[in-house]
Design a protein around this nucleic acid. Structure first.
Lengths: 213, 213
DNA sequence: ACGGCAAATGAGCAGCGTTTATATAATAAA
DNA sequence: TTTATTATATAAACGCTGCTCATTTGCCGT
């Protein structure tokens, strides 16, 4: 049939993204295919390529939405904490919980290598930065803004690399699958040790102060 | 043709693994296919399935070899350090360097989800433990063996999650591609802060002492 | 009413993992 | 030496994949 006009381009786009997310959540990346997505929204393959350049673009769009969702969850986790260190625990806890609850979607964000350059990639990186900013804000508060922003940015990335790694541990080895409480002490252990070391190293001119970014 | 007898089963196995590694190193996971591997070693697809149960098994075998190689590199990095903290730096540096040099192979170790149970998976996990043991040994030395082994094991995983995350950062965002020196300060920053915090928390009965594993 | 145009299709291409009947070469038996 | 057996390698086939494109369909303005 020709133009049914039932859905606008952006409507189809949204339907496809939602269908793709559903497929990924339930069956993982390998369960995703253009034909499955198309069928799920009542169209055929060709129509998908009318809206997305290719599957890669669709995946990048899904990843963008995942990052948005993650940002919101993390942001919401900050409502019930006051001390920055507790807020970092809250962020870490929310991060690990999200990773556990949406393992497939979450993994895809980091495992899918976007090919080539493009506007999408920049948007993507902005979304990542926005998530990191949540951590940076707490670190800045904790150090009473006595540490330059670029250094805070690096510290956030270093620290969160650790939390991220723990989330991966949690997922890959199904560590304590019964209620993901069990890796939380590990996370708090990492953060507390890291922060404890932070105070000791105020302006001691170590190698970290080299220009890195 | 029938049995040419030019290569034994284990010879074909080796040839296939080497060919697969070459494909992955140069073209990444998506560049790997049963037919490509078979062609590369002068056989046809079917013969591959005479040696491996399926592609998944071949990949797991490649990952095993990668872990062996990684272990050796890390082990060798310890020859020129004395103080445990310097040894941890050396391990971190070697880890990040290996990840950068063999990004595709290294990523596959963590991103490929081995399906189902089996002997291979256990061997695989032993290899992972062997790598962690290198870190644990340094942590134990640093804390003068005053901390129980299971706690050291967790600390190693927490700390190395951070180093791992930094390696991911290095690869994903091509952080300072000109000589991977630039993320090393970040790694040392993480380790030094973490270790600085370690001494402060001797037996203070925090949540970390809960039974986790 | 009809022409033009946008939307949607579905057949087709090359490649994928995997299975299997078949052909072949080396070996064992007669 | 000839024959039978067995292990090995193959090629074809199945159903799937991402992606393209000629073709058809239906709406909308003239």
């Amino acid at each position: 049939m020709g133009r049914r006009g039932e859905h606008s381009k952006s409507e189809i786009e949204n339907m496809a993204l939602e269908a793709a997310e559903r497929l990924i959540e339930t069956q993982g990346y390998s369960g995703l295919s253009a034909r499955k997505v198309a069928t799920a929204i009542g169209y055929t393959v060709g129509s998908l390529y009318f809206v997305f350049k290719n599957l890669d673009e669709l995946i990048q769009r899904v990843n963008g939405r995942t990052l948005d969702q993650l940002y919101m969850v993390l942001n919401d986790s900050l409502t019930e904490c006051r001390h920055p260190q507790d807020c970092l625990y809250a962020l870490g806890s929310a991060y690990i919980e999200y990773a556990s609850l949406h393992a497939h979607r979450w993994r895809m964000v980091f495992e899918h290598q976007p090919e080539g350059e493009g506007l999408l990639k920049e948007i993507y990186e902005d979304k990542v930065d926005r998530v990191y900013a949540l951590v940076e804000r707490q670190l800045a508060a904790l150090t009473l803004n006595r540490i330059p922003q670029d250094e805070i940015a690096l510290a956030a990335r270093a620290l969160w690399s650790g939390v991220h790694g723990i989330a991966i541990l949690r997922i890959n080895y199904q560590l304590q699958a019964d209620g993901q409480k069990s890796v939380l002490p590990l996370m708090e252990h990492l953060i507390s040790h890291y922060l404890a070391g932070f105070d000791l190293e105020q302006g001691d001119g170590d190698s970290f102060h080299q220009q890195v970014v």
